[in-house]
Design a protein around this nucleic acid. Structure first.
Lengths: 245, 245
DNA sequence: CGACAAGTTGAAAATGATCAACATCAGTGG
DNA sequence: CCACTGATGTTGATCATTTTCAACTTGTCG
């Protein structure tokens, strides 16, 4: 049976703040309607001013921005336990869109409930501040990835990072993982054209580093990839609770 | 006389949460030693595990990451009122370095005091959560800038954004502003080579759009720049307090 | 089967990087 | 007062990476 104690969000927050029974109860009251969204249809749309945020329960989504010329930049992917649209709610306006990669389930959280919960249990606010900071650290790493690495390094770095994140929730190993992303998703994530993504994947495969085919990422030479990408997973590490009970 | 009530940080946080006298008092107790740092010498160094965060009181700093091959990516610039190193403190490790562009003054904040303050006044935690979210929105916009715009558009967008931020603190107008950044800073910010930065600045000047010489940014054609860059300052807007007294 | 999304490949064009040289200016010490 | 130095800015020539355009393949689903 799935309870509040083993939800992905609780598991994630517990890495930072050891939550008490009272805090778990407050967290439980946040869980409102569970909603299902189909692949490809936007959950939140750029420019919209939203009332609710969500906690992702199952599936993958991507958050992205589109420009007037039609090009888009994927900012990040979210996996179960991650917040969706929290920034939009806090800043009173959505500066980005959120699209499910597959059919997903998400739990709606009303913003007033969340702010009320902070008042009741400040440690929960601290835990969420930590979660937001970790998200920012990932965006920063993407920025470095796009700004200062060539196409091959970008691809290797991105797929390694995704591997580490999925490993943390039991969905990947150092051997590889199942990955529903298309080459178009990769292109929009890495700031490349879809055609070039295809070539880069071929080069990595021919060098014996990694194979990404039929929705499966296989690390043929994990250490070689780490070296190529200059991958340092420190920014993803969970160093253990900062606040004790 | 400079009091807690008109410090840049208070001014910034007040945009989100109307702070009470009690909360202002808690904020005041956070203000510890005021320290001066010279230009070019790192305030926080990548990999270091820091005890303290800072609030920038005067001057500009940049936060950046360096890679093993020596290239660096500037993630963002901070101006007075911004937090420095908050993420490092929350995540228990510094994933980036912070370098003063000029001589700066910063106020040291001990992390335990900050977490203690959250417990006393949860609304302060909410205000800081908002500030962190706004920082993230800026990093996201930089990501789009580097991922999906060409060199000229990037330069225009960056200098326009900086203009808006400086205007919010009274240090710029639509005419232009004083800017201490070198072409190397711009290159490391925009993911370009310093040589190409120089060419791009020349092209913008020859097109009558903007002049950046001798530490002065002059907008020769503001609207033209906005069009070129596809600049939409929504993500920088301060929509007014979400939490009332 | 037909339609459509996704993946693959080649050739030409564009964008930006690298290398190298030189200019300008402020500070420094003889 | 001047030569020297280092940081910054400027320009040209060449090279590498990545994009664009176009065609074609493969697989899936009705």
């Amino acid at each position: 049976m799935r309870t509040i104690k083993n939800s992905p969000l609780t598991r994630k927050l517990s890495n930072f703040v050891a939550l008490t029974e009272v805090e778990l109860a407050v967290l439980a009251r946040l869980h409102k309607r569970r909603r299902t969204f189909e692949a490809g249809r936007d959950l939140v749309h750029q420019g919209q001013s939203e009332q609710a945020a969500y906690i992702l329960a199952s599936g993958w989504v991507c958050s992205y921005k589109t420009q007037t010329d039609g090009s888009r930049q994927i900012v990040d992917f979210q996996i179960p336990g991650d917040f969706l649209g929290l920034r939009s709610v806090l800043l009173h306006t959505s500066d980005h869109s959120i699209e499910p990669i597959m059919e997903i389930q998400a739990i709606e959280v009303v913003v007033d409930d969340l702010l009320e919960a902070f008042a009741q249990t400040p440690r929960l606010a601290t835990a969420i501040l930590w979660a937001v900071s970790r998200d920012e650290a990932m965006v920063v790493e993407h920025l470095v990835n796009i700004g200062r690495r060539d196409a091959g390094e970008r691809m290797a770095h991105f797929l390694l990072e995704l591997g580490v994140r999925l490993t943390q929730v039991g969905m990947a190993t150092k051997m590889g993982y199942t990955c529903p992303l298309t080459q178009y998703h990769l292109a929009d994530t890495l700031g490349l054209s879809a055609v070039h993504v295809n070539r880069v994947l071929r080069q990595l495969r021919e060098k014996g580093l990694l194979t990404f085919q039929s929705g499966q990422v296989v690390f043929d030479d994990y250490d070689g990839l780490v070296t190529l990408a200059g991958f340092d997973p420190t920014y993803l590490d969970q160093a253990g609770p900062l606040l004790k009970q």
